[in-house]
């Protein structure tokens, strides 16, 4: 993993967050209490002289970690901002896979409509595997939240947006260029508070946070931010992999099946 120049990353992110606030009529930010979205909020404070000048949304599926709920309350009080909590449900007749995937977008859609948000700040990074490598700093979503990646607008120079249909919205990605290790180095540099789940207890810690249902712990003794940085410097594990090396073949098979090869 490459450790990039934090100053450059910071400047770009501040620019994008300012654009999001000043270009659109009604922007909001998603917060999951994770390290990335919390870093985004820290950058927002830098961009707006200590304030967070837009609503912060938490889509809660009600089975998140207790530490995450505690952290939500702690930081919103410390940094003096309000959180709009949208409650997504685990439906009794849900077909298919994980609880998080199906219901959260529905809840978010409701909130976007209710509050009339036309832009949403989302803290994804390009180094997170797969489809995210194709995202742009600002990308449009139509009213059904679909993203036509083949018709991506020309993101020329520093003008990141494009005209969208009236019912859609623009997704803003200020952390696109950041690596996992850059996030932690910045957290260390700025003394940004983080969810305690990231730190090791009894030989395990969480590297990336979802809800209690889908998140898998990793073997680790990293108890401080410094430890985590050191750990990341040598690890080759993909952030979102709960898959062991044995399961890699199965994973590849699955993908090929989805493509119609097998």
């Amino acid at each position: 993993m490459i450790a990039q120049d934090l100053k450059t990353l910071e400047e770009r992110s501040i620019y994008i967050i300012r654009e999001a606030k000043l270009k659109f009529k009604n922007v909001a930010a998603l917060w999951s209490m994770g390290k990335d979205s919390t870093t985004m909020l820290a950058l927002t404070r830098k961009a707006f002289l200590g304030k967070i000048p837009f609503p912060v949304i938490h889509i809660d599926n009600s089975i998140d970690f207790p530490e995450t709920y505690a952290f939500r309350e702690y930081l919103s009080k410390k940094w003096n901002f309000k959180v709009i909590v949208g409650h997504s449900e685990i439906k009794p007749d849900l077909v298919g896979s994980a609880c998080c995937g199906k219901n959260k977008p529905e809840t978010l859609k409701k909130i976007m409509k209710e509050y009339g948000f036309d832009a949403l700040i989302v803290s994804i990074r390009r180094d997170e595997h797969g489809i995210r490598a194709k995202e742009r700093y600002m990308s449009p979503r139509d009213k059904d939240f679909r993203w036509e990646y083949k018709n991506q607008p020309a993101e020329l120079w520093d003008d990141y947006s494009s005209k969208l249909d009236a019912k859609g919205h623009i997704r803003v990605h200020p952390l696109l260029d950041w690596n996992e290790i850059d996030i932690w180095r910045y957290i260390k540099q700025e003394h940004i508070p983080v969810n305690p789940l990231y730190f090791s207890r009894n030989g395990f810690r969480y590297r990336s946070l979802g809800c209690t249902h889908c998140t898998v712990a990793l073997k680790s003794d990293a108890k401080t931010v410094d430890d985590i940085i050191k750990e990341l410097e040598v690890t080759k594990q993909e952030e979102r992999s709960g898959r062991s090396m044995d399961k890699e073949r199965e994973y590849v098979m699955q993908r090929l099946r989805a493509l119609g090869y097998m």
Binding site: S62, A70, E73, E89, I90, P92
Partner: peptide, 9 residues
């Protein structure tokens, strides 16, 4: 029915 992990804060 909803989750209740919030109360375990």
């Amino acid at each position: 029915i909803v989750g209740a992990t919030y109360y375990m804060k």
